[in-house]
Design a protein around this nucleic acid. Structure first.
Length: 676
DNA sequence: GTTCTGTCAACTGC
DNA sequence: CGCAGTTGACAGAA
């Protein structure tokens, strides 16, 4: 199904041989740690709560956790140290008051002076889950029966977080988030086979908490380092483990802060999830309802009280401190699903009491977004509008770059300069092999009726994939593997089978856009959740044909060069559950012979640029033939990807492929290697 | 005063 | 739509 795309741009067609420059700019344009807040009010500075590590933490048996915990201390400690030009105000987590002040254990020696950052609460938590205790001397009795994660890390040298995390809040937040997602997906997969209780989000969260794999552990007013405006989340527990919003259910996060000699309880973050009647037609103002008044098990309602969160909001109105705002929206892509978007800092302008339709008194707070911040929820609303009606998208060069080859049009836009489009190529969503598929080895099929079910030991496809179906019920890939086998023509199951994902093609509203310094790039109007299928690398298989490639061809070649640490570690999760590791190190990595050129023909994937800090990875998939050396190359999301974020993958390590030209990288990532 | 434990509330999420 | 399930604040006990 190829459609020739006859590009007839301007008169200077010759000059338009634009190729993706195979380099990339920051995936996250706002530099790390930059405080977008231009507020004139004094910065709130966090006093790092000092406490003892839970039993077992200082024993050296948990090096990875140790270094991580150290980081979170450092992040909280230094992040505002340099910005306190104005008179600093102390803000101390309430829980820190209860913290032991002695016995600070340094995990990493003298080079990490602030390693003792543990709030009392998390310390206690870690103590309770006795599975963590390395020396077994911890005699705390666990009263509330909780799952104990025994094989958590026992003795394994697990470098859970990339080394770059130690000084990069963004990397840490992403890594923590990635591990949470991996755990959640794996739990979901197991629950499906055992018909166990659901809530994989809570299970994953419990492990993260117990292992202390989290970011921004100490509460603080203002930005959460490493969390950027526009970041998206699908579960409240995600907000919890990255330290954006601590309460797992409650809508208001607050803490006690010192204002000179005074002390006040102030709000630091709210989740506006639409549970109450909030008006949010305007993106810069938000009317938030106080909490309480709804009885838990009866229909009884009572007046809201000025206590806890409500009181904190009231005090924040007077203290004029910044409050982080997370907005919740219905995710149209997911049935009854919700998506949370971090929308930056707001301040409370006024508050009042209101009588609701149930006749109870309710507190209302009007919040105004701080000026000078990049768009967050506004982008969501904008792209949702485009998805509803694509004609509302401005700056369009071409409505559908695929000329109908894709079921959803691929938009071509340029908001940067006057280039009229990429150089000529034929849009195809297929891979053209050197020999016809019919002559290739067929793939074995399953005998499942209707659809393949998780946990069915009779399903040949499940067995082929190592026992579990590779995707969960929402079509999300659970684990990165050398090869994924989807159901194909030889299978008896229907097209509705959940083991048919990538073969159905793209499901997102893509946009090929002009970047400022890397030619053309690819991004998406829809939010993409971690593990979701994005697109295939379409083009012509050339591996046996050409040995010497000219430069222009080289720019469009896909090869299975070993990707970086972030991609290789996408699977983390099994390790935390005590299962065998699926981690493949760079040394063990074995490339496939396949080479695909998208120079003359290809799809959206030919516009994906390289990044040293990517948000997409490739994964070999088989479904319509059995030639293991020439699988389909499918791209999946590494993290949740907010709308309008450039999609990038790791082109691979320099020198791993001798025939390949080395190119300068412009990805701008703090962990950028400079070349790729 | 400090540390520990129980209880409670909460814009979850199936 | 009902309900199990979580964190952290808080209060009271040790």
């Amino acid at each position: 199904m190829e459609r020739a795309m006859n590009f007839v741009p301007g008169p200077n067609q010759e000059l338009l041989d634009i190729k993706p420059l195979r380099s990339l700019a920051p995936m996250f344009p706002a530099p790390m740690g930059v405080n977008v807040n231009q507020s004139s009010t004094p910065q709130l500075v966090c006093i790092t709560p000092v406490g003892q590590f839970p039993t077992g933490f200082g024993s050296g048996s948990l090096p990875a956790f140790g270094s991580f915990a150290t980081f979170s201390a450092t992040a909280n400690g230094f992040s505002h140290g340099s910005t306190s030009a104005t008179r600093p105000i102390d803000a101390t987590p309430i829980s820190a008051y209860k913290t032991r002040s002695s016995g600070v254990t340094s995990l990493n020696g003298d080079d990490e002076p602030q390693s003792g950052n543990q709030t009392y609460a998390s310390e206690r938590k870690a103590k309770r889950s006795s599975g963590l205790a390395a020396d077994g001397s911890d005699g705390v009795k666990v009263k509330r029966p909780k799952p104990v994660y025994k094989n958590l890390v026992a003795g394994k040298e697990l470098a859970f977080l990339p080394a770059s995390c130690s000084n990069n809040p963004r990397e840490t937040v992403e890594a923590v988030h990635m591990i949470f997602e991996a755990l959640r997906r794996r739990h979901l997969q197991m629950d499906e086979t055992q018909d166990a209780s659901r809530r994989a989000d809570l299970k994953a969260g419990a492990i993260m908490m117990a292992s202390n794999i989290r970011a921004n552990v100490g509460k603080k007013v203002g930005t959460a380092p490493g969390v950027e405006i526009g970041d998206i989340f699908y579960f409240r527990m995600e907000l919890c483990i990255i330290g954006l919003h601590a309460p797992s259910m409650g809508g208001i996060d607050y803490m006690s802060a010192k204002f000179g000699n005074d002390e006040d309880s102030v709000a630091i973050c709210i989740v506006a999830a639409g549970g109450y009647e909030n008006e949010d037609d305007d993106t810069d103002t938000l009317v938030y309802s106080g909490s309480g008044g709804n009885s838990r098990n009866t229909e009884e309602r009572h007046d809201q009280k000025l206590e806890r969160g409500n009181l904190a909001l009231e005090r924040s109105l007077h203290r004029k401190n910044e409050i982080r705002v997370v907005r919740g929206f219905k995710d149209p892509a997911c049935l009854a699903g919700k998506i949370y978007i971090y929308d930056g800092l707001y301040k409370i302008e006024e508050s009042w009491k209101e009588r609701t339709k149930f006749g109870i008194n309710c507190f209302k707070y009007r919040l105004q977004r701080e000026p000078g911040q990049r768009d967050g929820a506004a982008i969501w609303k904008m792209t949702q509008r485009w998805i509803q009606d694509a004609s509302t998208r401005g700056r369009v060069i071409l409505r559908d770059l695929s000329a109908g080859a894709e079921t959803i049009p691929v938009c071509l836009v340029n908001e940067v300069d006057h280039e009229k489009g990429p150089g000529h190529f034929t849009y195809t969503n297929q891979v053209k092999y050197l020999r016809p598929i019919s002559s290739m080895r067929p793939l074995q099929g399953c005998a499942c009726q209707s659809v393949c079910l998780p946990g069915d030991s009779n399903c040949a496809c499940g067995q082929h994939n190592g026992g579990d179906l590779p995707y969960n019920s929402s079509g999300v890939l659970v684990c990165r593997k050398p090869v994924i086998y989807e159901c194909g023509e030889a299978c008896h199951c229907t097209l509705n089978c959940r083991n048919r994902v990538t073969q159905k093609g793209i499901r997102y509203h893509f946009e090929v856009f002009r970047t400022t310094n890397r030619g053309w790039g690819l991004r998406c109007w829809d939010p993409i959740r971690a593990g979701a299928f994005i697109c295939e690398y379409a083009g012509e298989v050339i591996d046996e044909l050409k040995v010497n490639l000219d430069d222009s061809e080289d720019d469009y070649i896909f090869q299975t060069v070993c990707p970086g640490e972030k991609t290789l570690k996408w699977n983390f999760g099994p390790e935390l559950l005590g299962e065998d590791s699926t981690y493949v190190s760079a040394d063990e990595f074995e490339p496939l012979p396949i080479k695909i050129s998208a120079k003359n023909m290809g799809n959206v994937s030919r516009f994906m640029n390289h990044s040293c800090s990517p948000n997409v990875f490739w994964q070999p998939v088989q479904y319509n033939h059995g030639d293991d050396k020439h699988p389909h190359i499918m791209f999946f999301a590494l993290n949740h990807i907010p709308p309008m974020t450039e999609l990038t993958y790791d082109y691979g390590v320099v020198g791993a492929e001798p025939s390949r030209r080395t190119r300068n990288c412009m990805c701008g990532s703090l962990t950028c290697l400079g070349v790729f």
